[in-house]
Amino acid sequence: MYAQMVDTGLKQVAEATGMSPEESAFQARVDADVKVEPKDWMPEAYRRTLVRQIQQHAHSEIVGMLPEGNWVTRAPSLKRKAILMAKIQDEGGHGLYLYSAAETLGVSRDNLIDDLHAGRSKYSSIFNYPTLNWADIGAIGWLVDGAAIMNQIPLCRCSYGPYARAMVRICKEESFHQRQGFDIMLAMCRGTPEQKAMAQDSLDRWWWPSLMMFGPSDAESVHSAQSMRWKIKLLSNDELRQRFVDQTVPQAEFLGLRVPDPELRWNDERGHYDVGTIDWKEFQDVLRGHGPCNRDRIRTRTKAWEDGEWVREAAVAHARKRAERAARAAA
């Protein structure tokens, strides 16, 4: 997902018997759906896991601006350009809300950003794929945002107050993103044969990475089980992926596009679609940095940050001068 395979730092799920009184009280509050707030006592592992998860989520929003930014200067109409700019701007806002949520846990945004640039913190691998034609902008909205929403809606109920509140705001704003993506696909699928071919090419390239966004099956994962106890993960990767497939396949059919999975078929017994085998080696490769755009994305982000250093410094210096002048005037 936007935050994939978050490490809790634990070898096994914390059980009631081994818990300190504080931990038991904490778990009881979480079980009772009482929100955890920044100044509340929380297990250190919970705090660290949250920082990791929220930070990955935030980085994904910020890095996610880049593949779409790749087309903003080439958007094919003024209306599409305005919509895309507004959408990418929203991603920036979402990154900001999430960094703020992480900051309530006692870390600074600059440190989180350093983690990203130094490769100490991940972001969603989906953004390491390139946007090669305009339909990719449609596919990102339709598939990538579609998959993200699937994960984010349950997170509005997560146990950590600031994270849950950020998610509420994000989900509210995100609702137009998926629709604008589908709208682009629709226009292209109803357009010229070349446009339809772009749309198909785009689905061919984004389908499998979108399914990988949910992460490998975590039925056996200690980290996922612990995160679910803590209610910072609400549904399993496979559950979310299945929901996504079930929702998306009919939409692809409506568009007249072929989902690039020969094994995809409706299973009457399960009441769900069956899908072919996901290439988890590709997933692991991209995660390790061997995706088409890993290097470019981090380089671009790092450059933007370093190029901005003197601007941020100057703003601080000026604010200090202003404050000093005001103090002198008052004296």
Partner: peptide, 25 residues
């Protein structure tokens, strides 16, 4: 629009894009 995603700080990225959106409108 060339600045989108590359501003010196997120707040500024968002603010500058607002100006761009006004101008496109």
């Amino acid at each position: 629009s060339e600045w989108v995603g590359k501003g010196p700080v997120i707040e500024e990225d968002i603010a500058l894009t607002n100006v761009g959106l006004d101008l496109i409108g």
